[in-house]
């Protein structure tokens, strides 16, 4: 990586940092507004996901990572989703019984 590129990266890091600080304030802020539990959870997770993506994409350089790693993480995300949602749906499908 050339020095100019690194310097360009450093600028991005500062911008991402500012965005993360801002989003932290936002997420604490909305928790004080009474919008009901459901929408509150959705909004809170949305903000957290945006923050998480910023960290993963820019600090961890996933935005221009090699294919091998992206495929591995793709598989990981799928099994993560299965792990989170399938046990839950077995619980809810009880309701119709």
């Amino acid at each position: 990586m050339k020095p100019e590129e690194v310097k360009h990266h450093v600028k991005i890091y500062i911008n991402v940092f500012v965005a993360l600080l801002f989003l932290t304030v936002v997420t604490v802020g909305i928790s004080y507004i009474d919008i009901g539990v459901g929408p509150g959870i959705a909004l809170g997770l949305l903000v957290a996901s945006v923050k998480g993506s910023l960290v993963a994409c820019y600090f961890m350089h996933l935005i221009d990572e090699k294919k091998t790693i992206l495929w591995t993480l793709f598989a990981t995300v799928i099994s993560f989703m299965i792990l989170i949602f399938v046990p839950l749906s077995t619980m809810f499908s009880n309701a119709g019984y």
Partner: peptide
């Protein structure tokens, strides 16, 4: 193999949809 595990759990009262 990641999406078959609950066939060990048919007797736990899992609903028919997920069954």
């Amino acid at each position: 193999s990641f999406v078959v595990w609950a066939h060990h759990m048919y007797l736990t009262g899992m609903g028919t949809t997920m069954g």
